[in-house]
Simulated scan of single mutants.
Amino acid sequence: MRNYPDPPIGGVGAPCLNLMREASAEAPAMVELGTVTRDLLASSDAGLDEHAVAKRICQACVAGLDVDGAVISLLTATVSRETLWATDPTAELLEELQFTLNEGACMEAATTGVPVLVADLHHSTDVQRWPIFAAAVAEQADVRALFAFPLQWGTVNVGVLDLYRKTPGALSAAQCRDAISASETGASMLLGVRTDPGHTDADGLPGGSWLDHSHSSRAEIHQATGIVLAQLGISAQDALARMRAYAFVERRLLIDVAREVVSRRLQFTAQMK
């Protein structure tokens, strides 16, 4: 579990963050995985493209977190933002409103890297930060509660997972823990699809949206992983995740990043975003 920065003043993610910080301080074996996280970890994304993976994440959240809808966007706070999957028209409308108005829980979660939780959009002082968005939701959508979770992996914000309810009410402590854990798992899954040539796209071709159709050398990726773990003093799993995150941000192939690491043209440091 990662460390969580302090939310902005008046941030609606503070109660949930306190729970996650407490969980992070416990021994890993003592933190029980929630229903959604277990479902995602038990599933295989082999042969799926990013849209199918996003659909799986959203559907698992709706089934396990007592919410009415979910939507995932990538590169949310950038000009390259993209909605990967929405469970229903209302979820899609929420996303479009936030993108159009450039404000809302989703945009705040993307820029701060902190969960944004609004138990009641009609009666919350927190939505004063997004008055136009709050008014638009009240007028156009049957939504009372909104929860935005950054899809974060290390220092990289992959995108945002938005959940909504038609009735007001906060997430329980267990649901909050599960949602954040599931968002981290989902970020890892999406990074893998977008940067690993071992995946196939919707047409059955190797690689995700940003990948070409060439065959990569697993040996080079394995060698680069060893170099990065030595540079940063981290585990092999975390080293591979750092390379995937870098490839995601730079919109490059994982194999190309690995080759630069092996050739010493690219060196990873703790300060790299």
Rank of each mutant, 00 (worst) to 15 (best):
M1Y: 02
P5H: 06
I9A: 12
G11F: 04
L17W: 02
L19F: 01
R21C: 03
A25R: 12
E26G: 08
A27Q: 09
P28W: 12
E32H: 13
L33Q: 09
L40S: 00
L41Y: 00
S44R: 09
G47R: 08
G47L: 07
L48Q: 11
L48W: 07
K55R: 15
K55P: 03
C58H: 07
C61S: 15
G64A: 15
L65K: 14
A70F: 02
I72K: 13
S73D: 14
S73W: 06
V79N: 13
T83G: 12
W85T: 11
T87Q: 08
E92P: 04
E92I: 05
L93D: 08
L93V: 08
L94I: 03
E95D: 15
F99T: 09
T100G: 14
N102V: 10
E103A: 07
G104E: 04
A110P: 04
T112G: 01
V116F: 00
Q128S: 12
R129K: 11
W130C: 05
W130V: 07
P131R: 04
I132R: 09
A136H: 01
A138H: 05
A138P: 04
Q140S: 07
V143I: 08
R144A: 14
A145C: 10
G154R: 05
N157G: 12
V158T: 03
L161V: 04
L161K: 06
L163M: 10
R165N: 06
P168R: 11
A170F: 10
A170M: 07
S172T: 09
S172H: 02
A174I: 03
Q175H: 03
Q175Y: 01
C176G: 02
C176W: 00
I180P: 00
S181K: 05
A182E: 00
S183P: 00
E184I: 00
T185W: 00
A187S: 04
H199E: 03
D201S: 06
D201E: 04
G204S: 08
P206D: 02
W210K: 07
W210A: 05
S216R: 12
A219F: 13
H222N: 11
A224Q: 08
A224M: 06
T225W: 05
T225M: 07
G226Y: 12
L229P: 05
I234S: 13
Q237N: 13
R242C: 10
M243Y: 10
Y246R: 09
Y246K: 09
I255N: 13
D256F: 14
R264G: 10
T269N: 11
A270P: 04
Q271C: 11
M272R: 14
K273M: 12
K273H: 14
